[in-house]
Structures are given as structure tokens and as C-alpha cells.
Design a protein around this nucleic acid. Sequence first.
DNA 1: CCACATTTGTCCGTATGTATC
DNA 2: AGATACATACGGACAAATGTG
Lengths: 76, 76
Amino acid sequence: MPITPFYQRIADEIRERIKSGDLRPGDKLPSTSELCTRYGVSTQVIRSVMLTLRAEGLVEGHQGRGVYVRDQGVTG
Amino acid sequence: MPITPFYQRIADEIRERIKSGDLRPGDKLPSTSELCTRYGVSTQVIRSVMLTLRAEGLVEGHQGRGVYVRDQGVTG
DNA sequence: CCACATTTGTCCGTATGTATC
DNA sequence: AGATACATACGGACAAATGTG
């Protein structure tokens, strides 16, 4: 049984929080440094998480503001 | 007008090649080091490209073998 | 089965740019 | 002007799977 890498576990957790409604559209995710501290990983791992979640259309990042949960099922 | 980052340009190019049929399901993409040399970027950039393309379901990587174009529209 | 090269996967540390507050 | 915060990129290191000889 393969071990799950950090970036995937974190992505899974955030994805589940979004799908379960714990995190709703418009909600702001914790900052990158906050997530780094919380999970004990580097910024690269968090970047991988956000890259994945963005590609899936679940979140969108804004420089200087933060990363926000998108309205699910909305592409524009 | 924003400049397009490397990882996004490379991802766009590969994505277009897949959607246009230039790269077909089952085709093997060039190796990571090959792409690094070709585009003059680091492995991290290529990793970001593959992470994005994988999240989009366009390709799938296999350790020791390579990255292959997936049958589009097939989830399993 | 073992040794080796190849290739993808994962992670760390650091630096710089740009946008927001 | 400064602090905060996301975005991009480089370099280095090690693990795991595969194919070849």
C-alpha cells in the first residue's frame, strides 16, 4: 500500500472541506506560511497543493490577497 | 498585459498538442530532463506542468517509464 | 538475482517579483 | 514606506519503479 505524499494529503483535506461545505465559496484559505507551519512542510508543497486545486477549479489565488474557494461548478 | 510564466506556457503548448491530436492517447511525452533542456527551465517547472496536466486528467505519469497521454474523457 | 542507467515522484531551502493592505 | 501574501523559479537531494544487460 503506497504512502500518501504530503501535498496530496493536504489537497485531499482541503478538497473534502470544500465538498462537505465546511469551506464555502468566497471563503479565504489560510495563508501559505500559515499552512506551512500547520502541516510542517515547505512552501513548495503548499504551492503544489494550490496548483492542483486550481487546476481542478476549486480555488483561485490572488496576489497580495489570498486564496479563495470558488463557486463550485462555475468556470467563469 | 501579464507575461505568461514558463510552466503555464509549456502546459498550454502540451495541452494544445493533445487537444489538436498531435499528441494522441498512449503517446509518451519527452522525459523530464529532455523538456528541461528543450525549454531551458528547471525540473520544478516541468513538475508544475505535469502536476497541472495530471490534475486536468490529460496525462498520467509512471515512475521509471514516463508520462503518457490519457484517453481523453476517460476517468478510470 | 544483481548492477546500472534512466525516469518519474517527493521534498527542502532560498531568492525575486508583484499585488494588496 | 513597510508588512503581508501569493506567484514564479532555481538548485540540490533522496526515494521508488522500470528497463537493460
